[in-house]
Each structure stands twice: as C-alpha cells, then as structure tokens.
C-alpha cells in the first residue's frame, strides 16, 4: 500500500490509500477520515471516506492547499501507529432474494446483459462456481459485509464481503447500464454489493430486494426520523434471506411505524480478523442472536 495524494482542483484533496481494494486499505482510509473529523480542522467542509481512498473538500481561503496536504500527511503518519479497532454496529438486513420486482426489471433489460438466457443471480452463481442459486444465496447471506462507502446517490451503501479474497464473490456490471432499478434492490458489481436507496438507473446485477427503507427525505419511516440516511461508512451488515410472507409483513410494519431494524453494537478488530477470519465473523454474527 502506497498512499497517493492529488489535488482535485482548488477545493479538494483526493487520497488514494491503495490502487486495489482490500479490508486493510478501507480500514486505513476510514481511520484517517475519522482522525480528520476528530481534529476539527478549520476550513474542512466535507470528509468523504470510500473503499480504498478518501476525499477532503476544503475552503482554500481558510486553509491553503499546501497546509491541507501537510496536515493529512501528519495524520497518515499517526494513523500507521494506531491499533486497528473500530467501535461500530452490526445490522441485519432482510432480503427477499429472487423477488418478482427485480425479476420483472431484469427481464426488461435482458439485451444489456452478458448472458441474456439466465437471470442475474443464476449468472452470478455460475461464474462464481456455485452449482445452484441456493448455494450462492448461502454465500451472499452467510458472511458479514463492511459498508465501505455511502454514496453515488443519497444513502446508497457499498458493501465489501468480509471473507478471504479467494472466496470473494465477483461479478461484472451490466454491459450497458439499465435506465431503471427498483428502489431497495440488492445489487452487485465488481467485488461490491449495494442497496439502491432510490429508484433509478444502475449497472449492478440484481439479486433481490429488502423491505427495509434506507433513505427517507420526508423522514416518515420510524427509524429514520432522527436522520434521513440509515447507513454510515464502517457499519457491518448481515443479510438474512426471507420469503414473500415475511417481506409483506415487514412492509406492513414499516408502513405502520412498527418496524425496528435489528442493530447491535460491536467492536471489530482488524488484527483478530486477519488471524482468524471465520472465528471473528462467527463472534460478530453471534451478537445478532
């Protein structure tokens, strides 16, 4: 990993922690942005962590670009000596895999897909070496995921699978993007899963849908009254497969203001994870039980 700094015009500094995606790169990016936030640097306007890089927007009339750069380099120096523990939360996200709505949508855009004869999840299962879709769903919902970035559009989480790289699911994006994706679709592109926060264009493969809203600008959803965006970078997610009846019940509960997402506080240690991936994941998942 070699950190690279580059100015994005006169108001941004872009910091690439690593060219390739890894949990280590994400962790370093997150700890550096946390350090920038807690330093409360005058002139800093936006602190945006992403997968293996991050970005700071600043007012160069208040802090010059050269000063901004040297402050970040100091923070990088300190970040390399800190322990790799993160106090965060684990969230269970119910997913209705192979639902009728994403199915209807993917059938409409078949000519934009690599393999028009099968569905997105059948294709993803096959190219990742799973004989049956059920086995693929077990893999997608079996391990926890790190929210490594929130963005693209309002409230959309990118999630990185917490498994050994050899087991990581990888899927190409559509050959050309769709003009439509149902709201709350569980998508997949490259090595990232996502949840579409709003309806709109998209190029990720579609596996299913969650009944649980994650963005509500009107703040009517009970658990989004304090803030309209559900996810934060650093959240840990566990997908839970559900059937149609459960899906319908949760939708009704959300509409009635009764649904409470399952959320538990956890501390994640990168060092423990690297020593024992399965054991660390199991401890995380146990917290949800």
């Amino acid at each position: 990993m070699k950190t690279r700094y580059s100015f994005g015009g006169d108001e941004h500094i872009f910091v690439e922690v690593d060219e390739q995606m890894s949990l280590e790169a994400f962790f370093k990016s997150l700890s550096m942005t946390n350090a920038v936030r807690s330093s409360a640097i005058t002139g800093v306007i936006e602190i945006c962590p992403s997968n293996a890089s991050f970005q700071i927007k600043f007012n160069p009339d208040v802090i010059t670009p050269a000063e901004m750069l040297s402050v970040l380099e100091e923070i990088e120096e300190k970040a390399s000596h800190t322990d790799h523990n993160l106090d965060t939360r684990i969230i269970e996200i119910p997913v209705y895999y192979q639902d009728p709505w994403t199915h209807e949508t993917l059938m409409r855009f078949r000519e934009r897909h690599q393999d028009p004869k099968v569905t997105d999840i059948e294709y993803a299962a096959r190219i990742n070496g799973y004989d049956r879709v059920e086995g693929f769903i077990d893999a997608h919902s079996g391990s926890p995921w790190f929210v490594s970035m929130v963005g693209f559009v309002a409230g959309l989480p990118f999630m990185y699978q917490m498994v050994d790289r050899s087991k990581q699911i990888q899927v190409p994006k559509y050959l050309s993007p769709r003009t439509d994706t149902p709201k709350l679709t569980i998508g997949y592109g490259g090595c990232f899963s996502c949840i579409y926060s709003v309806r709109g264009a998209g190029g990720y493969q579609m596996f299913g849908i969650t009944p649980m809203p994650i963005y509500d600008p009107n703040q009517e959803v009970s658990y989004l009254k304090d803030f309209m965006v559900f996810f934060n970078p650093g959240d840990i997610v566990k997908f839970k497969p559900i059937d149609r009846a459960t899906y319908d019940r949760i939708v009704a509960d959300v509409n009635a203001g009764l649904y409470e997402p399952k959320i538990r506080p956890v501390t994640f240690s990168l060092d423990d994870f690297q020593k024992d991936i399965d054991g660390t994941n199991q401890k995380l998942l146990d917290v949800l039980q």
């Binding site: 108001e11 390739q20 992403s50 293996a52 970005q55 927007k57 970035m149 693209f152 490259g190 090595c191």
Partner: peptide, 21 residues
C-alpha cells in the same frame, strides 16, 4: 487492473468524485 477495479481500463476501485472532476 487492480483487484476490485473492474475490467475496463477506465475503471478504478470505486472512489469519491470531487465537484468539477
């Protein structure tokens, strides 16, 4: 192409976009 970046040479590992980029 780096791991996680996608196969097209114009792809990178998804990152932040500055305004005006």
């Amino acid at each position: 192409q780096p791991f996680g970046a996608g196969s097209d040479p114009s792809n990178i590992v998804d990152g932040c976009y500055p305004y005006g980029s």
